[in-house]
């Protein structure tokens, strides 16, 4: 049924910290890897080893330059921006679907595609302003982020691993997963603390995912790197063997 379920108190989603994302694409790669083999896989590419490899990615990491005017002059801020499904509260991608393949789960708000029902009309991809949906040329059906629904409830995994693959893979902890419907959850507190924002709210689809903006730079435009500090070694505090090693190597 593509009519939206009544709003659930539980709103699972991601919080992405643009301040510390380093643009390493680990989340995108981990996502592709998990979903190629997980319950919803495979995610086959067209021409994977040829001249123009292409295929579906649920998560794509853009890099932007933000030109800033500061009292000290112009400078550019580099922002890495992972883009994936925002699991909107009132998503148009669900209501436009003619078959009922595109649906929003009533219990936790995850937006999914039932691949057995999808006819590949692509109207949902047209209806999404965030580019969250891509059709698989190989499978002929619409693909999208599942919020790793096959991980987060997977009781064969350790409890600590029941998180989306992208969150698990992030080396800087720039991605957080949790219930954004619960004001006391760690992710909700993070959003409140850091003024997390929703993308293009004017469309009225009420994205659940939030982005944390880059923190203000403390040093204005004086972006010259701090002088490298001389490393000091307190030889007296070293254990005997290392003190000897230090003496030998210092000759």
């Amino acid at each position: 049924m593509t009519s939206l379920p009544s709003p659930s108190p539980k709103k699972l989603g991601l919080v992405i910290d643009l301040d510390i994302c380093v643009g390493c694409h680990a989340c995108a790669v981990a996502c592709k890897e998990w979903n190629d083999g997980g319950e919803f896989g495979p995610l086959p590419d067209a021409d994977p080893y040829g001249g123009e490899p292409n295929g579906v990615w649920f998560n794509r990491v853009h890099t932007y330059a933000v030109e800033q005017e500061t009292p000290q002059g112009a400078r550019e801020l580099t922002v890495h921006f992972p883009r994936s499904c925002l699991h909107c509260e009132t998503p148009a991608c669900v209501t436009v679907c003619p078959t009922g393949a595109s649906y929003k789960r009533a219990e936790d708000g995850i937006v999914l595609v039932d691949e057995d029902k999808c006819i590949g009309c692509q109207l949902c991809a047209w209806a999404c302003p965030y580019g969250a949906r891509e059709i698989s040329a190989k499978k002929g059906t619409m693909q999208k982020c599942t919020l790793c629904v096959d991980r987060i409830y997977n009781e064969t995994l350790d409890e600590a691993d029941r998180q989306p693959a992208c969150v698990m893979a992030c080396p800087t902890r720039a991605r957080h997963f949790g219930d954004l419907g619960d004001a006391q959850s760690p992710v909700s507190r993070l959003v409140a603390e850091r003024d997390g924002y929703a993308l293009m709210p004017e469309f009225g689809y009420k994205p659940v995912n939030r982005y944390l903006p880059p923190r203000p730079r403390r040093d204005g435009a004086s972006a010259s790197p701090a002088p490298a500090r001389e490393e000091t070694l307190e030889r007296e505090k070293l254990p005997g063997v290392l003190r000897w090693l230090d003496r030998v190597l210092s000759r």
Binding site: A28, N54, Y64, V66
Partner: peptide, 30 residues
Amino acid sequence: TGHAVGLELLGITRPLEAPHTEENYLTREM
């Protein structure tokens, strides 16, 4: 771009690097 990313208040935003070297479904279709 700045509005789409939500950073227009920080300054003029322009793409520095695309997510992938090749075209994808979104760039071809839209």
